[in-house]
Write a protein that binds this DNA or RNA. Sequence first.
RNA 1: GGGCGCUUAGCUCAGCUGGUCAGAGCAUCUCCCUUACAAGGAGAGGGUCGGGGGUUCGACUCCCUCAGCGCCCACCA
Length: 855
Amino acid sequence: MSTVPEKPTLDGIEARHSERWERERTYAWDRTAPRERTFAIDTPPPTVSGSLHMGHVFSYTHTDAVARYWRMRGKSVFYPMGWDDNGLPTERRVQNFYGVSCDPSLPYVPGFVPPFRGDPPKDHRAVPVSRPNFLELCDELTAEDEKAFEDLFRRLGLSVDWSLLYTTISPHARRTSQRAFLANLARGEAYSQEAPTLWDVDFGTAVAQAEIEDRERPGAYHSVAFHREGGGPDVVIETTRPELVPACVALVAHPDDERYRPLFGSRVRTPLFGVGVPVVAHPLAQPDKGSGIAMCCTFGDLTDVTWWRELRLELRAIVGRDGRIVADAPHGIEGAEPLARWARLAGLTVKRAQAEIVTMLRESGELLGEPRAITHPVKFYEKGDRPLEIVTSRQWYVRNGGRDRPLRDALVARGGEMAWHPEHMVHRYANWVEGLNGDWLISRQRYFGVPIPLWYRLDAQGRPDHDAPIVPDATALPIDPSTDVPPGFDAAQRGRPGGFAGDPDVMDTWATSSLTPQIAGRWVDDPDAFARIFPMDVRPQGHDIIRTWLFATMVRSHLEFDRAPWRHAALSGWILDPDRKKMSKSKGNVVTPVQLFDAYGSDAVRYWAASARPGVDTAFSEDQMKVGRKLATKLLNATKFVLGFGTAPGDDAVADPIDAGMLAGLAAVVDEATAAFADFDYARALERTEAWFWWFCDDYLELVKGRAYDDAHPGAPSARAALRRALGAVHRLLAPLLPFVTEEVWGWWREGSVHRAQWPARDELLAGVRADDDAVALLDATCAVLGAIRRTKTERKVSQRAEVARCEVHGPADRLALLAAHDGDLRNAGGVRELVYAGPDAAGDVALRATVTLA
RNA sequence: GGGCGCUUAGCUCAGCUGGUCAGAGCAUCUCCCUUACAAGGAGAGGGUCGGGGGUUCGACUCCCUCAGCGCCCACCA
């Protein structure tokens, strides 16, 4: 406990109290607490690929407020932090930062020094480095970023237990991730399959449905003529991707389409290449789209995949994994002229190939009319720059209900078992699960991730046997199959016929981050700890990743534990620019969190964040931070003032009805704030507490300060005691929201941290106090008359200090009687010489009214 | 095309289960250096609660419908 300073200030309180909290382990999770006394939070691990922004400050503040509330309610709060440092965003940042690229075929170079450390020149060509070297650089850069992240979160005042810190690339996370994957594999929930998948040609990896987004892109319809075998008029199709003509394997129309029904079963020849393809019927074909008959290529879009699969069409793949037309013409393209045309396409990017093929179609006369420009949605990897292609490759999948109705229904039902905040977010979840169109593709052809922990036997020809992977021993995890050797083999057999090969892929980052409860709770190596935190109380996160992180976590938990991983999901909103546009990082003028902490103080920034109701998109507002700073300053000053009255030891009786009325009002606020916090509504708790506190300062404090000052006044002890009770409650009510200033003022008169103090309660506030309706009515009436007096003084443009010669109060007799018996504070605060109670006025109006005559 | 949310003073928003609300903060204007705080205090002005219809004794609050804004999803050749 320190003493009340002469000149209270907010300066420096963040550093002082952060340091103290760390030293005293104020926020340590009590690992011995049973599950029912624990409040467990599945903190979102921010992606380590740059810097934290106001969106993080915003949402993490919300969670922290709730964490602090439950801690004060006596819960052992499990509040970990994690860094999501594995995955593509990190790789991309490492490439850009050091000017390197990963080439797994290169050997490790000990002591490798990257060409740059930040901002390579634009014309720099990435230096290829080995996979181990690349991973070292990833580790190095993420370590730096993570330090900055931690500093920022500490400055923000997050009450996380930093000893629980985890990273998603750590050995522990890799072990957990591989263990969970192997469990999925053992139960048949994970499987590999050679199939067409969406592919990002720049990143060179498959991507999952959840990571795809549509973008509006310019395109054009091209009318292209196909020639009927056996004569007859050409069949005209319209396509936005004429470059895929050589990949065409069929024309498809709707079974009921009279125009094309006669053609079903016949064959046509493709333009330019003269490849014979069938005309077939399928209900997915839309008669009103284009000419009503579509060219099915392998593969232009997901509909093509469906047609190809369901109609058992040929495979004629022409786009390579690099996004270029492959060198060798697909089967069916033969003869001098077609092959000459193919030669003009081979090696071109898809975009260039389109231009070339349009030229050729013009030359051959098979392009009818000119292309007609349109804008249409095109599928992109959400982090990618070029449209996705579809290529056939072997990938690993985890069942998620996308191909399995019962599982899908079960997962939807799981969502219904949880409480969602706000409630309507459950629709996003259900909507997504209902719309799944395939299992979860978890393998990625990347490097900085958790390896798929499998090897494959190679047959005499050196071909891998994918049907019976070699599984590592559980105790050996984590493993890297590209360097570790499977049991029963030796290193020399790697890649040799009769030997083995490691799975070359890593798991998607969501495949690991979907296990945050298991990672943070130490599922694999501390089952006792895990049992104390699982299922967790709340998953806080942004609503944009319901379909990814939330759903993926649900899938893993459902499959592994047959239950939802949390009881609540709390979805936070977005930060918008002051002009209500989604805040973009690309704008150069974005203010950094640290600048705002410096300018207004952490509590003030938190105040802004906590003012937004859960799940609501919110405008960035420095004005709101200024208001928060005012509140913090007010708390300093009011506390200093109240504590300055002093108190006699043991004299804590609240006897005066004015004081009792005040405490009754505060008790109601405590009830409201408590209910609000329990419902994750930190904003309502703040709003109610704040509004009451300003009333407390402006009305109650003004009303009783004269009495509290006056040692000779018999009501002084009651006022002082009530003021201190109220103050103690306000400090604690605001502690979850403004942790620094409340800790500061609490320290002036109480032992220990306010953040470990017990949450205020009605009974505690009103113990021994006669807080009946009369007390509340009296205080109410007193404030009403005081208000009338103030209004008069303001209207007359005199100081509030000016004396009132006479104040005549009209109103119901019972009210007046209450007032008459206890009007000392009113006389004092209003400067009233003569106070007259006149009963109801002439008109019989029962409303309380005061006629004020100034001196 | 499907789903969801929003539309209340100039601005940002509260108004939970229909009958003290038409409210708060910011901004604007006026006044007050009052013995915690001028990084303060006391007041004022300002809205037919998006439009229309309905249920009801009575709706910002319930139902229907229309419009605008925003978000999510979608197999869109």
